[in-house]
Design a binder for these strands. Structure first.
Lengths: 197, 197
DNA sequence: AACAATACGGACCGACAGTCCGCTTTGCAA
DNA sequence: TTGCAAAGCGGACTGTCGGTCCGTATTGTT
């Protein structure tokens, strides 16, 4: 392995940068009026340090985003149903999308920053790939749903950060209403209401 | 009215810029490696001219996009069914989305440029508003579909430029397959296959 | 204590969107 | 046709931002 324990100051600075960036992205109007220099200053660190630790802007945002998303990822992979494995596929799909929606509602600035930051699109980020693969595999267990591939993309598109921001932020749609709307929509995609014996 | 006929050279240059920009956006890898200076040079025009004519980058891309989309808009508003008014709502929704998908397939570079160019998101662009309003109104005629508002957003999200680009460009999904997938998906959202008397 | 190895940080660079202003073209009017 | 504003032109210029570089400071190891 080529792992190396980072020096103490490096670790401290990395943490400071993450915290500062988190704060800045959380309460900014638009993600791109927080500059790298701002982040460095807020963290009490030089730009060089910041770039060495994260490579570039995308790297920083991704690191933050993934750190925040990790608990959700864990709940999905090893948590209890319906979010975790084991639930009936329809319920799980709904739960997955709801979790994603809530996450984006709770981390609007960050999610927006991720999608807006350089790297042409969310597609191609490995974390998108992960969610798509998972969602697709669950969708394919839903009876009568032929094309999980496309449906997974389309459903994920329904919770994209900028749409969420538009509805929740700009247009003031309340959280619970959005969740209900999404659940409703998801149910339609999943097919006619299953017979309840 | 405060309308003023533009001078001849102004009109000529405006056209030259539009043509040049169209060409550049059409065959570029990523929209943001065509710079304003590039466009000006390709059009044989100074940057000042370009900015006076279109205000800023967003203005240019919007002008281009709307010029290209206009025929589609016309077909939708006054053309024959199923794209134009008069068709059964389910058919029309499908036709609308298919038209949009085809448009984005045929104008990938441009559509990508529009979504990627500064202005935080597609939402808030007046042309999005137009499509959303229309789609919503048609959706609300579909029996059993309670929430046209959200469904319209979600369906439009399924044909977003960067998703189309990802599937058609990066992953090489052929045009007809994408259309079929979208039609399939749309049908699911619209509800169980209607009884055919 | 000495000395690599690692990290620090801010001056520096290149690129790009957008502005400015002296010069040219246009088209109206005498 | 000639005169003359007004409208338009274009490229040098500016401000900002992401990203790099390198002399200096900090670690931690022997």
């Amino acid at each position: 392995m080529t792992e190396r324990k980072p020096r103490k100051d490096a670790a401290r600075n990395r943490a400071a940068v993450l915290a500062a960036a988190d704060a800045l992205f959380t309460d900014c109007e638009s993600p791109d009026d927080v500059t790298m220099a701002d982040v460095a200053a807020a963290a009490g660190v030089g730009k060089g340090t910041l770039f060495r630790a994260f490579g570039d802007r995308v790297g920083l945002v991704k690191a933050l985003y993934e750190a925040r998303l990790e608990p959700v990822g864990r709940a999905v992979e090893t948590g209890p149903p319906p979010l975790g494995p084991g639930a009936e596929p329809q319920r799980r799909v709904t739960a997955l999308l709801d979790a994603l929606l809530c996450f984006k509602l709770d981390n609007r600035g960050l999610a927006l920053a991720l999608e807006a930051t350089g790297h042409d699109s969310p597609y191609g980020a490995e974390h998108y790939e992960r969610w798509h693969t998972l969602l697709r595999s669950v969708l394919e267990e839903v009876p009568g749903l032929a094309d999980g591939e496309f449906a997974a993309h389309a459903l994920l598109a329904a919770v994209r950060a900028d749409l969420v921001e538009h509805l929740a932020g700009r247009r003031g749609v309340p959280r619970e209403r959005m969740r209900a709307q999404l659940a409703d929509y998801t149910a339609r995609v999943l097919g006619p209401a299953p017979a309840r014996p």
